[in-house]
């Protein structure tokens, strides 16, 4: 279980990126965090990943406080961030240097098979398409078997069809891994949030905080065209609208 308690972040310049964020994510749960720019959603993710330090509050996994990068937490960034001098298989095995070679190779092969790129094992990253590269990044994060996988706008740089494909793919992977990893996905794509998440967290800026939490009670696989999906979309959209600073000025 991932527990975020009273997390705040103020940058040296005085920017109030996060203000007292509390969030608990159960094991195997998928949570999507949506919000406009400057709402602190990426900052939140980076603190959970141990890449930034909070000004106050703490992050813990199963009661263990996490303050720096932790083997139990994996992260996939917006860009694949593959090492161009390593082959796909070497990239996936990057974090497994401590394992004996045979075991490492087996786990890399398994992870590549899981993301459907077994045939690309010995290819250089530059020979991959954007979607393939991002799948390698997912494999690299999953091969370490983290309890929590953080995804920071993982599909936003991809074209619409590839994005749909990878969203479906991510769910398949999540369902196939046991025990199921906890996924925390930061996105600005409301459809993506509804399609993937058990719960959608809407954040608002200045200072960055949680505005609203909404469970998504739709059976999987979810149909984007279903009326229930549309209803959920409308609900989240209006929650997002209420977070826009411009509107409060208008209504004042």
């Amino acid at each position: 279980m991932l527990t975020i308690q009273h997390l705040s972040k103020t940058y040296p310049g005085g920017t109030h990126a996060l203000e007292a964020v509390d969030l608990t994510v159960g094991a195997g749960e998928i949570v999507a965090i949506v919000g406009g720019s400057g709402c602190g959603k990426s900052t939140l993710l980076r603190i959970v990943a141990g890449l930034d330090r909070p000004s106050a509050g703490r992050v813990s996994i199963d009661g263990r406080v996490v303050s720096e990068p932790d083997p139990a937490i994996g992260i996939v960034f917006q860009e694949p961030r593959l090492f161009p001098w390593l082959t796909v298989a070497q990239n996936v095995g990057f974090g497994l240097a401590h394992l004996p070679r045979a075991e490492r190779d087996a786990r890399v092969a398994e992870a590549l098979a899981r993301v459907g790129l077994s045939d690309k094992a010995h290819v250089w990253p530059r020979q991959l398409s954007g979607g393939q590269a991002q799948r390698v990044a997912i494999a690299r994060a999953l091969v370490a078997r983290p309890e929590v996988l953080l995804l920071d706008e993982p599909f936003s740089a991809l074209d619409a069809f590839t994005r749909l494909d990878l969203q479906r793919h991510l769910l398949q992977i999540w369902a196939a891994v046991s025990p199921r990893p906890t996924l925390v996905i930061v996105t600005h794509d409301v459809d993506e949030a509804i399609l993937l998440a058990d719960r959608v967290i809407v954040m608002q800026p200045e200072p960055g905080r949680i505005a609203q939490e909404m469970p998504v009670d739709l059976p999987r696989p979810r149909d984007r065209a279903a009326p229930a999906f549309e209803a959920q979309r409308r609900q989240i959209m209006s929650a997002l609208d209420r977070t826009l600073p411009g509107l409060s000025v208008l209504s004042a």
């Binding site: 990068p69 994996g74 990057f94 370490a144």
Partner: peptide
């Protein structure tokens, strides 16, 4: 810097 960060993630 982004690639160095991946190194940090892998400790």
């Amino acid at each position: 810097r982004k690639i160095v960060e991946v190194g940090r993630v892998f400790r």
